[in-house]
Design a protein around this nucleic acid. Structure first.
Lengths: 103, 103
DNA sequence: CCGTATCCTGGCCGATACTG
DNA sequence: CAGTATCGGCCAGGATACGG
């Protein structure tokens, strides 16, 4: 939980599971995240050995983020969390519907 | 993550998966948690419909916490997190060992 | 035994401005 | 394009004391 407990990290990993992404790709995928948090979370995942950062010295510069083999170990975690999240959303929608019926 | 992101909640659920527990049982199981956080997290899980709280009006009073059917849906989440946590711990132990060798 | 009330601290996180 | 620097709000979480 210390590693994954942040608001964005697991979501970030879930996008990287699809393949390498550029910084701007991730910003687009995650509307609402600040540049600062994206950087901080990427750095934390990099230090933990889950993300590989590659800089291509072009102009303008291109930076790619990719999961390492260790990072790919997060796939089952992401999958089960995603499944649970969907179920939870469906359940709460049902509850809300039932309440509007009785009202 | 909003629901489960706290430091203790998933651990709390993992203990409740074994069966109903009393407040004092949970305090024993989770050394380091404050009475305050235990209460707050139990209340949050109760409000979310994952935990059933039962008060037995004896003297002294006995209170039991049990997972609901919905709460039991967290079992796969707990399982996968536990597995990942164990793997991570083993990996970091290996890394620490390798570093002490090279030093 | 099972809490609540109160106070306090650290760090998550966002907003904004600036740079190679 | 891909960041860094700085400031500040807010809230999770801990410590302590008290109550039914």
């Amino acid at each position: 939980m210390r590693l994954l407990g942040g608001r964005w990290r697991l979501l970030l990993v879930s996008y990287l599971l699809d393949g390498p992404k550029r910084f701007s790709d991730l910003r687009r995928d995650m509307p609402g995240i600040s540049q600062r948090m994206l950087t901080l979370d990427l750095r934390a995942l990099e230090e933990a050995g889950f993300v590989q950062r590659t800089v291509y010295p072009e102009v303008p510069v291109r930076v790619e983020y990719d999961l390492t083999a260790d990072g790919d170990r997060l796939r089952p975690v992401v999958d089960v969390m995603r499944e649970f999240g969907l179920w939870l959303k469906a359940r709460d929608a049902l509850v809300a519907h039932a309440e509007s019926e009785s009202a």
